[in-house]
Design a protein around this nucleic acid. Structure first.
Lengths: 210, 210
DNA sequence: GCATTTCTGTACTGTATGATACAAAATACG
DNA sequence: CGTATTTTGTATCATACAGTACAGAAATGC
C-alpha cells in the first residue's frame, strides 16, 4: 500500500471558488497504482477515472493531460516508494545489514500482496522511455538519484573500513542498483519471493566480501 | 541489424495457391525492430505494416493478430539476439574473458547505432507482462533460458577451478544476468557506452575474484 | 444578495485503432 | 482450359480512445 504522504497541495490556503471534493495526493496515488501495474500506454483514462474516483474534467484540471499525469505519478513513485527503499540504507548498522534491509524492502514491495507489481522504474518506465524523451529523462533522473544514495552509503562504509579500499563506490553502487532492477523484473516474471531473497543475499555477500 | 536467419517457413514445400510475395522471417524481423523500440502497446498496426511492407490482411494471415505477432517477434528475439549474446560465453577462453565478451555483445546491442534500444526482454516485455499472462510466461521462459546458459558456463568454470568453490553457479548466474538486464535499462535511459562497460567490468571482477 | 470564481458531471467530438469483407490476381491440380 | 486454392490490395467496420463543451453546483468576496 502507498503511504499517504501529504504534499504542498494538501495544505494550500483556501481558494476562491467551489472547493475540491477530492485529495489530489490520494488521487495521484490511485493513478500511480494503475500505471504501476499496466504501464503508461496500456492504461486508459476510463481506468484512471475508475481508480481515482474523479471524472475526466477534474483529472484534467488537476494534472493536465495523460502524459503529465503519468509524469506526476512517476515523480510521486520516486518520492515515496523509491525513497522508502533508501531509508533502510541509512540505518546505523553495518553495511551488510543495511544492504540486506534495503533489498528486503525492495523484495517486499516488488512482490506486493496484490500480485507481482515489480518496480515502476524498472518494469514500465523503460518501455515508453524508448520513444518519449521526457520519460527517458525521468528514467535517467530516477536512476541517478538511487545510484547516488547507494553510493553515498558505500562511501561511508569505505571510510568505516567495511569495504575494500580498491572497491569503487560509484560502480559498486550501480551494481547494487542493477541487482535491484533485476529483482523487480524477476518479480514481474513471477519468480518466487524466496528466489529473489537468495539473489539479494548473494549480491550483499559479493559486495561486502574482501 | 538483425541477422537474416532462415527458419522452417522459408524452406517449406511449394504450396497450392498464389505464392507469398514476402519473406515471413524478414517481415518478423521488421516487426521485431518496431516492437523492440516502442513496446507492444505503443506500436500500432499502421507502424507494423509500414515497417514490414505487408498490408494488414497479409500480416493477419501470416501471424494471426497483434498479440500473436508480438509473441512471435519476442520468440524470434530470444532465438536470434538473445542467443547471440550467449555464443561468446561458450568461447574456449577463461571465464573472465568469456564474461567480458558476453557483456561486450550486450553493450554493443543495447546501445545500437539506431539509438539506445536496450533489450526487448528487459525494457519492453516487463511492462506488458504485468497484465498479459501469456507475456509473463514468455518473460519467465526467456529469463530461465539465459540464466541456464550462464549457469552452465559457471559450472564448467568451477570445475576448471576458475570460480571459488563456495560460489553457487545458479545464483551467481542470476546476478550476472541481472547485471545484463540493468545494463539494458541504463542504455535506454541514455547512459553512455563507457559507463555500461565500466559496470560490466566491475561485475566480471567481482564474480571472478576469490 | 449578487457577482465572480472554481469545481463536478454528463454528454459529446474527432480520431486512431485492431480487425475484416470482398473482389481481383496468381498459382497448382486435373 | 477450367476449377480450386491461396495471397494481395482496397475499402470499410465497430470500437476504444484522449480530450473537451457546457450547464449546473458550491464556495468566496463585496
Amino acid at each position: 500500500m502507498l503511504p499517504s504522504v501529504p504534499s504542498a497541495a494538501s495544505v494550500a490556503p483556501r481558494r476562491r471558488g467551489r472547493p475540491r471534493q477530492f485529495d489530489a495526493d490520494a488521487a495521484l496515488d490511485a493513478a500511480l497504482r494503475t500505471f504501476w501495474r499496466k504501464g503508461f500506454q496500456a492504461t486508459s483514462l476510463d481506468e484512471l477515472t475508475a481508480a481515482t474516483g474523479l471524472n475526466r474534467p477534474s483529472l484534467y484540471a488537476a494534472f493536465g493531460n495523460k502524459d503529465a499525469l503519468y509524469a506526476a505519478a512517476i515523480a510521486r513513485y520516486v518520492a515515496t516508494i523509491g525513497r522508502a527503499f533508501l531509508i533502510p540504507l541509512a540505518a546505523p548498522v553495518p553495511l551488510a545489514a543495511a544492504l540486506r534491509r534495503f533489498f528486503a524492502a525492495v523484495v517486499a514491495t516488488t512482490c506486493g500482496a496484490h500480485g507481482p507489481l515489480g518496480c515502476a522504474i524498472a518494469c514500465t518506465l523503460p518501455a515508453d522511455a524508448g520513444h518519449l524523451p521526457a520519460l527517458q529523462r525521468l528514467l535517467a533522473g530516477a536512476l541517478a538519484e538511487i545510484d547516488g544514495a547507494v553510493q553515498q552509503r558505500l562511501v561511508a562504509a569505505r571510510a568505516a573500513g567495511e569495504l575494500p579500499r580498491h572497491a569503487d563506490p560509484r560502480v559498486t553502487a550501480q551494481l547494487v542498483v542493477g541487482t535491484m532492477l533485476s529483482l523487480a523484473i524477476r518479480a514481474r516474471a513471477g519468480a518466487p519471493r524466496r528466489e529473489l531473497t537468495r539473489i539479494a543475499s548473494a549480491c550483499v555477500a559479493l559486495v561486502t566480501s574482501r
